[in-house]
Each structure stands twice: as structure tokens, then as C-alpha cells.
């Protein structure tokens, strides 16, 4: 019921033009996201899977945008669509030893545990989505809902140390990634 509330509020936007177009965009992004995720499971060609993941992640970015989370949406596109997907594609190309990359189920004994794990995960997420008391409001977002600017102001005032620490964390990740890739290259 709570989810339905959220959806109906998303549809009931302030101006009339948005009220008409918002559900259209919402369902477009949602369908793109869900259908391409499902297609990833069905399609056998791994490179096509990677491109379907791209459309799924882009659809999610669109949904973030509709919710007013601009920073999240752009980070999603920049880091996930622009970065991690490239990494996945390179990973696919690196492991390629056959003329065509086709998914194959070798260990059929894994089907039952896989289904079980999927069911547990689905139940856990579904349960938490339905039971958590989401703070639903029908008020429009405040006038200063410009999320990138708010995050920027916060980073430059109250969260300067975490901001600089993020840089150190990235440095550690960079050095670690270079080390790991180097060792793998020496073996291969």
C-alpha cells in the first residue's frame, strides 16, 4: 500500500503539464529498467548482456531524476554507465577464449541453491519494502531541492574531512587496483 501511495504522489505533481507527463516518463523508465534486467537473465550472449545492463542502469538513473535526486542520477550515469560498464566489457573481452561468448550452465547442481538464494533475497527485500514505515508526504519538494548544490555546500562546510578522506580512499583503491592488475598480468 505504501508503495502505491508513493507512486500516486509521484503522479500528483504541482503543475498540470508535469501531472500528465510524469507517469509517462515513470512507466517508460521503469519498464526499460525492469525489462532489460529480465533480458540479461534470458539472453545468452555476454556482450549483449553488458549492453542490456547499460540500458537497465540508465533507466534507473531516469527514475532517480524523477524523484528529484539529480546528483544520484548523474553519478549513476557517470560512474555506473560510463565507468563500471566499461570495466565489465573489458573484463568480458579479457576472459574471452572462444569465438563467441555464450553463457553455459555447467554445474546443473547449482540450480536449486540458486533458486533458493534468489527466493530468500526476494522475500527479504520485499518484506523490508512492505514493512518499513516510509515517510510519505504529499508536499512538493522544498524550493532549495537543488541536490548537487546542497551536497556541494555540505561538502565544503561540515564534511570537509570526509571529502578529503574520500580522496585518500580513492588513492588506496587506485594503488591496490594497479597492484592486483599487475600481478594478474604477470601470471597471464
Amino acid at each position: 500500500m505504501n508503495i502505491l501511495n508513493t507512486l500516486s504522489i509521484l503522479a500528483a505533481a504541482p503543475s498540470e503539464a508535469t501531472a500528465i507527463w510524469l507517469p509517462v516518463f515513470f512507466w517508460t523508465f521503469a519498464l526499460v529498467s525492469v525489462l532489460s534486467s529480465l533480458a540479461v537473465l534470458v539472453v545468452k550472449d555476454i556482450v549483449r548482456c553488458a549492453f542490456l545492463i547499460m540500458s537497465s542502469l540508465s533507466g534507473l538513473a531516469g527514475l532517480y531524476l524523477l524523484l528529484g535526486a539529480e546528483f544520484l542520477a548523474f553519478t549513476q550515469i557517470m560512474v555506473y554507465v560510463g565507468g563500471i560498464l566499461i570495466l565489465i566489457l573489458f573484463g568480458v573481452m579479457l576472459t574471452n577464449r572462444e569465438p563467441l561468448l555464450i553463457k553455459r550452465m555447467k554445474a546443473t547442481g547449482l540450480v536449486a541453491p540458486g533458486v533458493l538464494a534468489g527466493l530468500i533475497l526476494f522475500t527479504a527485500i520485499g518484506y523490508s519494502v512492505c514493512t518499513v514505515d516510509w515517510k510519505v508526504t504529499d508536499q512538493p519538494l522544498p524550493a532549495d531541492a537543488d541536490t548537487p548544490a546542497r551536497i556541494g555546500n555540505a561538502l565544503m562546510s561540515d564534511f570537509i574531512l570526509p571529502f578529503e578522506m574520500a580522496s585518500v580512499l580513492l588513492l588506496v583503491a587506485l594503488v591496490g587496483a594497479a597492484m592486483a592488475a599487475r600481478r594478474g598480468g604477470a601470471e597471464g
Binding site: F71, F74, T75, M78, V79, G82, G83, I84, I86, L87, F90, G91, M93, L94, N96, R97, P148, A149, I151, G152, L155, F163, A166, S167, L170, A173, L174, A177, A178, A181, R182, G184, G185, G188
Partner: peptide, 25 residues
């Protein structure tokens, strides 16, 4: 099969991609 160096460069690129995400706000 791609050369391993592509992957290293992609990893380095990813780090600087996240850096841009921090610099954007």
C-alpha cells in the same frame, strides 16, 4: 582477447571517474 593493459587503464579510469563525481557538487 584484449590485452591486460586495457583492464589496468580501465581501472585507473574508474578511480578518476569517481573523483569527478566528487568534484561535480
Amino acid at each position: 582477447r584484449f590485452d591486460m593493459r586495457f583492464y589496468t587503464v580501465a581501472l585507473v579510469f574508474l578511480i578518476f571517474d569517481v573523483e569527478v563525481a566528487f568534484l561535480y557538487p
